[in-house]
Write a protein that binds this DNA or RNA. Structure first.
Lengths: 221, 221
DNA sequence: CTATCAATGTACGAACTAGTACGTTAGCTA
DNA sequence: TAGCTAACGTACTAGTTCGTACATTGATAG
């Protein structure tokens, strides 16, 4: 997410639209994730930037459009990560477990993104709805899941009657909750869901859960 | 959550501290859930009340304390519901499924509560941390889960090595995500997770998932 | 070398928003 | 029925916050 690094241009170039825009987006991402849409302050974003508030309005139009752009970029990052998904060479069980683990890792690695999604839901996904880039784009992961499910069912390994979207929801649920609700959960139950010591525990718990669900003996219960 | 109903007092009594406080809390709950902590407006809460802003400060001290009180009351509602949990007469498998279903139903029935929890997490659970009533109160459901898990393991039905807190997290994840993220999920994947037509589907999906996880044949994979 | 425009900075304003000072009254009690 | 106090209302303020009018400058084309 930190797309702005120092100069890279030894000559003291001062005007650089791309860098200014990227820096605003980086700072805005952190500020919106930190405080929510209404809690975020345009002046604060500007202050944490090497440019001024004027530039935010010059490039993005306003607070609302800035937030939308922040969201678009954040979703772009997962899409990219999902593009690089390479699990279909594995057998269906291993492939699903690997996919779940990658989803797990990605959620843990991008808490700011998780917060942005929470915030966007508080506002009824109105920014996604108003964005051309984000309307019903689906997700590359869905296609991967679809194909694995098909293979798994053909081979008789998978007995569950789910489609890719619902399985994606199931996997995301666990990953999302753990990161998004860690504060209230920790405060109420005294357990830190993102404690590094429990990292592997939860990672395999997710895989076990999904595999158990997909391969369960349906006749039994 | 609507604890304020009309008069109930035929004599035109105007001053009623309890009713005024309850009405403020009802309205505040909706307003905070609607717009988030910073998005909520004290003036708006007052306007939707039969009293004035002065009373909010008179009874609650300020916006922050009002939000804390709203949270305390909201958590009180689930605790009460969980007190009434009566599933231990069932066999372990049926008991866990029933518990999952009740959790599922409760989440669906209280979307405002879910939103408040999301909002509180955005703010690092600072209000829960600062509340005497909410610090590490745990949950009645946890004790129930603990006992069912024990019975299930003794009988050999449950093979999974989980404790009650983690199982509670697993169940809550699914229920919470479905309600909290329905807007972004719907906008991105075109599927409404709270569509009444899919209600039963997701309800049994949750039960299947939890039972499959708990009873999976651990030797196999 | 200079004209031009994208890029940038400064300073300000209008509207909003949490919170409060001060005054009033209902209803209970002695 | 007089008096007291919890309960309530009005009007205001100090500070904040998004947004903009206006001025300026760096870099590039010709």
């Amino acid at each position: 997410m930190t797309s702005v690094e120092e100069p890279a241009r030894p000559n003291g170039r001062i005007r650089d639209a791309a860098r200014t825009k990227a820096e605003i987006l980086d700072v805005a991402t952190q500020e919106f994730a930190r405080a929510g849409y209404d809690g975020a302050r345009v002046d604060e974003i500007a202050a944490l930037t090497r440019t001024t508030k004027r530039m935010i309005y010059y490039y993005f139009g306003g607070k609302e459009q800035l937030f939308t752009t922040v969201l678009e970029r954040a979703y772009g990052v997962i899409r990219e990560a999902e593009q690089g998904l390479d699990v279909e060479h594995l057998d269906p069980v291993a492939a699903i477990r690997r996919l779940a683990e990658l989803t797990f890792d990605h959620h843990e690695a991008h808490p700011a993104f998780i917060r942005l999604v929470s915030i966007e839901n508080i506002h009824g996904a109105q920014h996604i709805a108003g964005s051309e880039k984000l309307g019903k784009i689906g997700s590359p992961a869905l296609d991967v899941i679809r194909r694995i499910l098909e293979t798994g069912r053909e081979s008789g390994l998978f007995t569950a009657d789910v489609d890719a979207v619902d399985l994606h929801a199931m996997i995301s649920s666990f990953c999302f909750f753990r990161v998004a609700n860690r504060h209230t959960f920790g405060a109420l139950f005294g357990r830190d869901l993102v404690d590094p010591a429990r990292h592997e525990h939860y990672r395999s718990m997710l895989g076990d859960m999904v595999i158990a669900y997909l391969t369960a003996d349906r006749a039994e219960h």
